[in-house]
Amino acid sequence: MRRGAALIPLLLAAIVILVAVSMLAGIVWLSPAQALGAFSAGPTDLARLIIIELRMPRAVLAILTGGALGLCGAVLQGLLRNPLAEPGLLGVSSGAAVGAVIAIYFGLTARFPYAAPVLGMCGAMAATALTFAFGRGGTLSIILAGAAVSGLGGAAISLALNLAPNAGGAFEIMTWLMGSLSDRSWDHVWLAAPFILVGAAILAGTARSLDALALGEAQAESLGVDLDRLRLTVLAGVALCVGAATSVAGVIGFIGLIAPHLVRPFVGHQPSRTPLPSALCGAALLLAADIGSRLLRFNSTEIKLGVFTALVGTPFFFWLVLRLRKTAP
């Protein structure tokens, strides 16, 4: 049997189990019988409301967002041949955050509820375009451009916090920045899903080119890979996926960094075989993190999802840096 043949079924099974748990877990614990009964209950049934209007969209968003982040992390690491690459690296998350913060800061969210998601996607697109424009001419320059764009995004967010007219506005911005899936509705799902799915479809076409890139840019080009087009394709796909994901769920770090590393040993480290399992792994990780953040409460305050993934993800990041330092020449 091919190595890692069981990986995808296992990840799918994990997602199914985590979705089931996420239907039951929360402030109001439901029994499996209650949960199943919810689907046949009347429209005013509490369990039905909790499951269909609160927990299902939340789980679907966790799958979409986690999947998008895992997929983008794998494709970016393949493109940049850098194990530390993730959507945050190219400034995409930062750009999306700026867009949403602008919506909140100018009070657009009050008049038009979806201003944050829409502007978030615009911000992601702008940040990606900026990274691409300044990052032409190689992998190193694209990483540096991404760092610069992230820095710019951070500065813009700080400026918004600095100028926020009242403490409430600043608090709203901070809360959004922490990333969360609570109080999300089906509307959020319908808003993000098309962009994430289109982005994922775009990224799926890059597999062979990512494989060839393992040999470096010169060899990849000699094998018929159009590097400029590949970079543009990846950045477009990533902007759609991460822009949409970030704008509905806030800034969620480390999923895109961790997921590819977890699945890579099972697919022989092949860049082309990493993205699909990495997306599934990202979805499972975010579902688990969402359940964890729901259950971990301090004085009845829910831990924000982005804070949770950062707390869990940072040690992994340190471990990765340590390992790279050991293997680097």
């Binding site: 041949r81 890139l213 393992a214 040999l215 470096g216 060899q219 022989g268 480290h269 092949q270 860049p271």
Partner: peptide, 8 residues
């Protein structure tokens, strides 16, 4: 030439 990932 070098290879960036530990592929076989």
């Amino acid at each position: 030439p070098r290879c960036d990932w530990p592929i076989s």
